[in-house]
């Protein structure tokens, strides 16, 4: 038997704005997305987290979206410990892969760096969120042509319905060719707005 699933909170970041739970938290038209992400870190992260500056752009985006979402919802330490994180995008880590490829393209200018190489995987951002929030839950990273609520939510529901967790952080996190976009939502089997695919797609379209 299927349990009821709720949307407990959501957060989205684009090149120019950040929206959380129907509220536009900030808008910025002057900055490029890298500077915009730094300003979000400065203004919306309550903790000092120097590791942030070592991350690639996709991990920074994932980290910040999770940070702001979790700040704007209630969750116990136990719930955070079991939080499942299921993310997706189209380009995997190609934005950072291209940087790494440039470092090995030329035989006479060959400088592969472990600090870049480690970010040439799409799931590293999930790892960064898990470290920050002490989450030991289920992880998966999917590659889809565009945001696919059906895939993410079907998978999230298999975790919720089998009691593997009570909370799943789902979403989309993409950084490519000078653009960033994220949309994370927290699905829960305890409280929030009743989930439907139509609901979540409407929220996604409205951002």
């Amino acid at each position: 038997m299927k349990n009821t699933v709720y949307i407990k909170a959501y957060c989205a970041i684009t090149n120019t704005k950040m929206v959380c739970n129907d509220e536009v938290l900030c808008e910025e038209n002057e900055l490029d997305y890298k500077s915009f992400l730094k300003s979000i870190y400065k203004n919306y992260c309550e903790v000092s987290y120097p590791k942030f500056f070592k991350m690639d752009e996709a991990s920074k985006l994932a980290f910040l979206t999770a940070e702001v979402l979790l700040k704007n919802t209630s969750m116990t330490e136990n719930e955070k410990e079991d939080l499942a994180i299921i993310l997706s995008n189209k380009s995997a880590s190609l934005n950072t892969d291209r940087d790494y490829q440039n470092s090995i393209q030329d035989k006479n200018n060959f400088y592969p760096s472990p600090a870049i190489f480690v970010y040439t995987l799409p799931n590293i951002g999930i790892g960064e969120i898990c470290i920050r929030h002490k989450s030991y839950g289920e992880n998966a990273f999917y590659i889809t042509e565009k945001f696919d609520a059906n895939l993410l939510s079907t998978y999230a529901q298999t975790l919720l319905n089998t009691n593997k967790t009570n909370n799943v952080l789902c979403g989309w996190v993409e950084v490519e060719k000078g653009k960033c976009s994220s949309f994370f939502y927290l699905l829960s089997n305890t409280e929030g707005e009743l989930y439907s695919e139509k609901n979540i797609n409407e929220i996604y379209q409205s951002i």
Partner: peptide, 24 residues
């Protein structure tokens, strides 16, 4: 196709994912 890319656990995770989608 459903594409899973989760570093070095991808291959075994894909089996787990298949099981869950079948059970759903």
């Amino acid at each position: 196709p459903i594409i899973v890319s989760n570093a070095c656990v991808s291959g075994v995770l894909a089996i787990a994912v298949a099981k869950r989608f079948l059970q759903a």
